[in-house]
Amino acid sequence: MSDPAFATTPEPPYYAVIFSSRRTVGDEGYARMAERMAELAAQQPGYLGAESARDADGFGITVSYWSSPEAIADWKAHAEHAVARELGRRVWYEHFELRVARVERAYGKG
């Protein structure tokens, strides 16, 4: 039985983009943009899925999974994604960190 909160990924290797953030107070259009970015990312070649969580204090982590560094670069270059990143820097995030990692091994239960 699969759990829709978990991304379904292929056998490694693949890549993970890990975005950790602390939100500012208020929505300021964040929820709508986050939904749009999830829809848009899912349409990109090389996108494998994502997992996301945010606590009551505004700290969150989103991990998106990609088939290659090129797919990640193409997503970064997408015009709508660029607008969302700029709004994130100016309006939505007090602090953020982004890390890109190659997944060499993966296993789970479920």
Rank of each mutant, 00 (worst) to 15 (best):
E28C: 14
Q44D: 02
V83P: 01
A34Q: 13
R32K: 05
A16F: 06
A34F: 12
P45H: 03
R90N: 14
A42T: 14
A77T: 05
R23Y: 14
Y47I: 02
G60Q: 09
D74Q: 11
D27A: 11
L87D: 09
D27M: 10
F6Y: 10
Q44I: 02
E70K: 15
Y47F: 13
I18S: 09
A84L: 04
H81W: 11
T24Y: 00
P12F: 15
E39Q: 09
S68Y: 14
T9M: 08
W75Q: 03
E39Y: 13
T9N: 08
A42P: 02
T9W: 07
A84H: 01
G26W: 08
A50W: 05
A16V: 10
V17N: 09
A82Q: 14
V25M: 09
R85C: 03
T62I: 05
I61H: 03
T62C: 10
T24I: 05
A71W: 05
A56W: 06
Q44F: 06
G60F: 12
H81P: 04
M37V: 15
L87P: 00
E51H: 14
R36A: 15
E51R: 14
A73R: 15
S52P: 05
G88C: 02
Y14M: 02
A84W: 03
T8D: 12
R85H: 07
T62A: 06
V83Q: 10
A42N: 10
W66P: 00
A31Q: 09
F19Q: 03
R54S: 03
G46Q: 01
E94T: 13
F59K: 08
A77N: 08
D74T: 15
W75K: 02
A31H: 11
G60I: 07
A71H: 12
I72W: 03
L40G: 03
A16W: 07
W66V: 08
A5S: 15
S68I: 04
W92M: 04
R32P: 00
P45S: 06
T9D: 00
V91W: 08
R89F: 07
P69K: 15
R22C: 10
I18K: 02
R32G: 14
E11C: 01
V17E: 12
